[in-house]
Design a protein around this nucleic acid. Structure first.
Length: 456
RNA sequence: GGCCAGGUGGCAGAGUGGUCAUGCAGCGGCCUGCAAAGCCGCGUACGCCGGUUCGAUUCCGACCUUGGCCUCCA
């Protein structure tokens, strides 16, 4: 089944064809590690995790890189504010990031390059740009010369003159052109710095991604992904740097951008202060519900975050896991799980995850109705492609069980069973009320009574 | 001001020139000691105004409106 993906560069959905089907390359702009990430930051990683899962089904080898930016002025500021070493900050939050992403069911990328481990290729790339007349040194800085690259602005649909006219920032006096951006900047002794032909300094943000992408994936990659807020200037600058440093070779063949997560109707961002940290949400809600919510809208659309939306996701998962729990004794066929065509077709259509989830609901209905191994495997296989439904149903229903005295629950259920057998329904209902007070929900079924921990 | 996306039933959210999204919630019925779950059934949704068309939520134009980018940002 062919994959079609919307390409921000051409502004249309195109059949996806990798440069080398034996090695499909994907790069996602990762976090700057100076704090915990918020749930908006997790949308791209979740969405493109699904993309990579899909690609892996179609191609024997997919190399997926998601970087860690561990040199940045915000990191420096955080370290100074907290009075600790910079690498303490970056180490701590890079680890927190990995944990948060794992919590959301995101597979570990093949490569997780760190900017500070790529200073040599960054410097080399800057030297190449200077040699090619695309960059210049000025007052300890090295700047990219936007005027040297006529195609600048192709991705974001802007032209250089427009950028100058619309510039809202103060222009540094050493810039030839107001749109020129920093490749390298000087460091003072208390700031992180590396030796370079332009003195001790540190790289600018944009050049890191260009250099790391080239170092691990090659000069031309298949897909470069990130949030739409990075489209300009970050991705525009990456294109300029990489194209100019690689003799005009295309940098990324597909550019994919996920829409913003909104909260209170506005983009969730640290500068607006309306953020919800993944770290905390993972404590407050079933992680899988967070993932489901992030996949419940099309990745290019804005998605609003709210408690109600999370509650809906929890209810949906309740229904699906209920089906799987009822089929707990149905043996799966041997081998890998089949992926239902309907789910795959939805994802092949520019990663239409809402459609894929609708199909998953159909599969759940079928599994409930048919109750056989084939239907169960289809539901699980469809879920697997989306990174959902992979835990034991009992684990889903009894999450948070450590706060519950399971032995006491079982004891009460036994008492209730006796009461019901004696047709003492008043007593039985009293016991159920007692269980409800303990946060336990019960269901009488043909096979006996089940219990679940009440939804958080 | 420039560039770019949206406005779909109570909520979430796809999609399409002409019988159906889907989910959550709700309502009625069946089932159940009662619940829950399940099953059956139920909702005159597509911002506004024009245009094209036999027919538009879907195409075109204007308008209103929300948001994103133009500055660090996923």
């Amino acid at each position: 089944m062919p994959i079609s993906l919307y390409n921000s560069l051409s502004r249309r959905t195109e059949p996806f064809t990798p440069l080398d089907p034996q090695r499909v390359t994907v790069y996602l702009c990762g976090p700057t590690v100076y704090n915990y990430v918020h749930i908006g930051n997790a949308r791209g990683p979740v969405v493109f995790d699904v993309l990579v899962r899909l690609l892996r089904r179609h191609y024997p080898r997919v190399v997926y890189a998601r970087n860690i930016t561990d040199v940045d002025d915000k990191i420096n500021a955080a370290a100074q504010a907290q009075g600790v070493a910079i690498d303490l900050i970056t180490g701590r939050f890079a680890q927190a990031y990995r944990e948060d992403m794992a919590g959301l069911g995101i597979a570990v990328p093949d490569i997780e390059p760190h900017a500070t481990a790529h200073i040599a290729p960054i410097v080399a790339m800057i030297e190449t740009l200077i040699a090619g007349g695309h960059a210049y040194a000025a007052e300890g800085h090295v700047l990219f010369d936007v005027g040297s690259y006529p195609a600048y602005g192709a991705l974001s649909g802007r032209d250089t003159e427009e950028l100058i006219a619309g510039a809202r920032v103060e222009v540094a006096p050493y810039k030839k052109n107001p749109a020129d951006f920093v490749l390298w900047k000087p460091s003072t002794p208390e700031l992180p710095g590396w030796h370079s032909p332009w003195g001790i300094g540190r790289p600018g943000w944009h050049i890191e991604c260009s250099a790391m992408s080239a170092a691990h994936l090659g000069e031309t990659i298949d897909i470069h992904a990130g949030g739409v807020d990075l489209l300009f200037p970050h991705h525009e600058n990456e294109i300029a740097q990489s194209t100019c440093a690689h003799g005009g070779k295309a940098f990324a063949r597909w550019w994919m951008h996920n829409g913003m997560l909104t909260f209170d109707g506005r983009k969730m961002s640290k500068s607006l202060g309306n953020v919800l940290l993944v770290h905390e949400l993972l404590q407050q809600h079933p992680p899988e519900a967070l993932r489901l919510r992030l996949l419940s809208g099309h990745y290019r659309q804005p998605l609003d975050w709210s408690d109600g939306a999370i509650a809906q996701a929890v209810s949906t998962l309740d229904g699906w896991y209920r089906v799987l729990r009822d089929l707990a004794d149905v043996e799966l066929p041997a081998g890998t799980l089949p992926v239902p065509e309907t789910v795959e077709a939805a994802l092949c259509d520019d990663l239409n995850t809402p459609q894929a989830l609708a199909e998953l609901s159909q599969l759940a209905d079928q599994a409930r109705l048919e109750g056989n191994a084939r239907a169960k495997a289809a539901l699980l296989g469809g879920g697997a492609l989306l990174g959902l439904l992979q835990q034991e149903p009992e684990a889903w229903f009894r999450r948070g069980e450590n706060t519950v005295d399971a032995a006491r629950v079982e004891d009460l259920l036994l008492q209730r069973r006796s009461a019901r057998a004696a047709r003492d329904f008043a007593r039985a209902d009293a016991i159920r009320d007692e269980l409800t007070a303990l946060g336990i929900v019960i269901e009488d079924g043909a096979q006996g009574t089940r219990w679940s921990v009440l939804q958080r």
